[in-house]
Design a binder for these strands. Structure first.
Length: 222
DNA sequence: TGCCAGGCCCTCTTTAGGGCCTT
């Protein structure tokens, strides 16, 4: 197959929310996102979001975000419109992406935006690349890989920045171990679904394929 | 009163159950 440029920009994002499920009425209360270009953070987006109701004490304790902070925040329609511009058509990445994807799609649906989103997941990747970790929580992975702790865990921009660092670390480790000259996003997305016992085989074969047919870097496939 | 997430992934599995992850 044809692969895209491994240096294609991506957006890493993280939502803080009022609970676990938009289908149960939960809403986003904070979004953080970073644009990665040339293996570094090139731009940042962050905003609290007023969900239109009071969040629980439990969520205040988890996130450090309280109702007083949210009372002055812009509403979801305003923030999501700005976020849509920031995201553009770039591929997206999150830690446990299924969670952020369902809130992204839910919040966009409220402003009439529905389209497929192309997500990669650092949780699924880390389970395959770092199977011996004590667990695969974002905080554990950041500390075990000695990556910088940029602020408080469970705040959206800090989590997005640290997820971005983890994403780049995973790419660097794959490139080193399997002799990739850059790892295209589609390869990482495929890797998220490769059975654990076949990860090595998949990466060896893909690296060989890329060496015989390098990615097209003249234009985006997205 | 009792209900209250969902996808991934392992195993004592596949006619299922439970821990891990996200807030």
């Amino acid at each position: 197959m044809n692969y895209s440029d491994p240096n294609e920009p991506i957006v890493v994002l993280d939502f803080e929310t009022s609970g676990m499920s938009p289908l149960q009425g939960d809403r986003a209360i904070e979004i953080g996102a970073v644009l990665i270009r040339d293996q570094q953070i090139a731009d940042r987006f962050q905003s609290l979001i007023n969900p239109g109701f009071l969040i629980t004490r439990e969520i205040e304790m988890v996130t450090g975000i309280n109702n007083s902070m949210l009372s002055d925040a812009p509403d979801a329609a305003t923030v999501m419109t700005d976020l849509s511009r920031f995201i553009g058509s770039y591929p997206l990445v999150a830690h446990n992406a299924s969670f952020d994807q369902k809130f992204l799609e839910s919040e966009f649906s409220f402003i009439g935006k529905t389209r497929p989103y192309n997500f990669g997941c650092t949780l699924l990747l880390s389970r395959r690349i770092y199977p011996d970790m004590p667990n695969h929580k974002l905080e554990t992975l950041i500390r075990m890989k000695a990556l910088p702790v940029n602020g408080k865990f469970h705040r959206a921009l800090a989590d997005a920045e640290m997820t971005a660092a983890l994403w780049l670390k995973i790419i660097a480790d794959i490139a080193t171990e399997y002799n990739f000259d850059g790892v295209p996003f589609e390869v990482l997305k495929k890797l998220c679904k490769v059975p654990h016992e076949k990860v090595g085989e998949f990466l060896k074969e893909t690296a060989e394929e890329l060496r015989s047919a390098p990615p097209d870097t003249t234009g985006s496939l997205f």
